[in-house]
Amino acid sequence: MGAPGREAPALLDDGGRLRDLRGVVDDIDGAFLAADGLARLAAVAVDDLPVLDRTDLRVGPPVRPGKIVCIGLNYRDHAAETGAPLPSEPVVFLKAPDTVVGPDDTVLVPRGSTKTDWEVELAVVIGRPARYLTSAEEALACVAGYAVANDVSEREFQLERGGQWDKGKSCETFNPFGPWLVSADEIPDPQNLGLRLWVNGRLRQDGSTKDMVFPVAEIVRYLSWFMVLHPGDVINTGTPAGVALGQPDPKPYLTAGDVIELEIDGLGRQRQVVGQA
């Protein structure tokens, strides 16, 4: 919580009150997660923590990732709406970590953009090093928790300008993240979560993680054979149908003044007002 770059750690209690963690931990980061920080937090007497006034309090991202790994075309209905075949292996690309902003921060349409798009996604936060994993059980043991991500994308930059997808994914503010890091024990089945996104009050995406081509455990296992996943790294696991790219012409891409709202069951809600870079 707090101004960008000066956020303080906080905890949401069972009553919906915000509790100040500054007397317990300096930051929720990779080092904290690697040291079983979430397990240590579970032992804290929550009622003894100071309650924060949430009025006009900015919510920052729950973690600043070392890297963001993204999975493309990972929902059957999204692949269908874009006319793409289902992938035989996960489609992997990287997104610049400095795209991460708070869940309610402004999303900026890049200069020259006419095809800025939305994508509600389940984000996986890694809690222990993952390398050469061989089973779903090993993979899920490396997951610290889950969060909401908006994998904002510029489709012309991504698909029409040559090269890799990354340049349509890594513009500033293109990864609103949070509001919460919800520990893995609170989400016993990540393949049974509803995802929804609205633009200007109109429901655009309404899907379920049941529709993933590659489930969370397989994504983590698979990636561990191509890169080391470190505590604090984030995986954006794909988006369901309903993005602007999949709509009939004229496609309703984002413009300044639009309002995006998105949520995932059990993980909280985001709201962004779109601005112009």
Rank of each mutant, 00 (worst) to 15 (best):
G2Q: 07
A3W: 11
A3T: 13
P4C: 10
G5E: 12
A8L: 14
P9F: 05
L12M: 13
G15N: 14
L21I: 13
G23D: 03
G30T: 08
G30W: 07
A31P: 00
F32C: 09
A34C: 02
A35C: 01
A35Q: 12
L38W: 10
R40F: 00
A42S: 15
V46R: 00
L49G: 11
L52Y: 08
L52Q: 08
L52R: 13
D53Y: 02
L57F: 10
L57T: 14
V59Q: 15
P62L: 09
G66W: 07
G72T: 10
Y75K: 11
H78Q: 14
E81R: 09
E81Y: 09
A84L: 14
L86R: 12
P87Y: 03
S88M: 05
E89G: 00
L94Q: 09
K95T: 04
P97S: 14
D98A: 11
T99L: 04
T99P: 02
D105K: 06
S113P: 03
S113G: 10
D117I: 04
D117R: 06
W118P: 03
W118E: 02
L122K: 08
A123Y: 04
V125G: 10
G127K: 07
R131I: 08
L133M: 02
T134S: 15
E137Y: 00
V143C: 04
G145Y: 09
G145D: 12
Y146D: 01
Y146T: 01
A149D: 02
N150P: 06
N150G: 05
D151A: 15
D151H: 11
R155M: 10
F157V: 00
L159T: 09
L159Y: 12
G162I: 03
G163H: 08
D166R: 14
K167V: 13
G168T: 07
S170A: 03
T173S: 14
N175H: 07
L181K: 01
V182S: 10
A184G: 08
E186R: 15
I187R: 06
D189R: 02
L193C: 11
G201K: 10
D206A: 15
D206I: 06
D206N: 15
T209W: 07
F214Y: 06
A217F: 01
R221S: 05
Y222C: 01
L223K: 11
L223Y: 11
V228R: 14
V228H: 10
L229W: 01
H230V: 08
P231R: 03
D233E: 03
V234K: 12
A241Y: 02
G246W: 09
D249Y: 06
P250C: 05
L254K: 12
T255L: 05
T255S: 15
A256P: 01
A256F: 03
V259C: 08
I260Q: 00
L267F: 10
L267N: 12
G268R: 09
R269W: 13
V274N: 04
V274H: 04
Q276H: 11
A277K: 03
